[in-house]
């Protein structure tokens, strides 16, 4: 029953994603590995679309992944499952918000979870770089070190990294440029 599995996986993701939309990435990578729903390459496309459209990234990702896995109903179920822990926990906390605001437990928990989440997202970033910049499949066949690197993508990566830190434009800007470069250069 794909809908039940979707519901379970995404309610889990919603419950344990702490610290923003990208915190859902490590979960989505594990979903991509565990189920035949979508590949890592498709997941990277989903991130691009979710970054370039309105709405919270976490919900965009859930809708997209759910839809690829189980059609329109799958998309709706995944988004609701992703939002349910937020609504339940926040409704519960809302009653005594002032009490929790300065809670030592909450603050000290957050203090240690954030660097761990940062490491988790860094791993997801490494996974995306493997997909976009390296050709492990070809390298395994030819064992030629030159085949391991996708030269043009690596040049574009370094250039974009430099300019995005210098000019700090919205992600959509860089996604659009990279898309156009992909079409022109056909790598």
């Amino acid at each position: 029953m794909i809908y039940l599995t979707l519901f379970y996986e995404f309610i889990k993701t919603g419950l344990f994603s702490i610290g923003g939309g990208l915190a859902t990435l490590p979960f989505l990578f594990q979903i991509a590995e565990r189920y035949p729903w979508f590949t890592v390459a498709e997941l990277v496309n989903m991130i691009a679309i979710s970054e370039s459209t309105p709405g919270p990234i976490g919900i965009n990702m859930a809708t997209y992944a759910g839809m690829v896995a189980g059609g329109v109903l799958g998309g709706i179920i995944a988004s609701f499952a992703m939002a349910i822990p937020s609504v339940v926990i926040s409704s519960f906390l809302a009653r005594g918000l002032q009490k929790y605001k300065d809670s030592k437990i909450l603050k000290s928990a957050f203090y240690g979870i954030r660097p761990a989440v940062c490491a988790l997202i860094a791993m997801a970033g490494i996974g995306i770089m493997k997909e976009a910049l390296f050709d492990l499949e070809l390298f395994k066949v030819t064992e030629n070190i030159g085949d391991l690197f996708k030269i043009m993508p690596i040049i574009i990566f370094v250039t974009l990294l430099f300019f995005s830190n210098k000019y700090k434009k919205h992600p959509i800007f860089y996604i659009a440029i990279a898309g156009v470069l992909g079409i022109i250069l056909k790598f």
């Binding site: 496309n45 691009a48 976009a132 910049l133 993508p153 996604i175 898309g179 156009v180 992909g182």
Partner: peptide
């Protein structure tokens, strides 16, 4: 083919976005 090559370019931008997010998060959390 045109959509495929657009997305293979876009993947690079996504890698950049995630790396930047990680750097920012690292500065705030570590």
């Amino acid at each position: 083919p045109i959509v495929e090559s657009a997305f293979s370019g876009i993947q690079i931008a996504v890698a950049v976005i995630i790396i930047n997010a990680v750097i920012k998060m690292y500065k705030n959390s570590v």
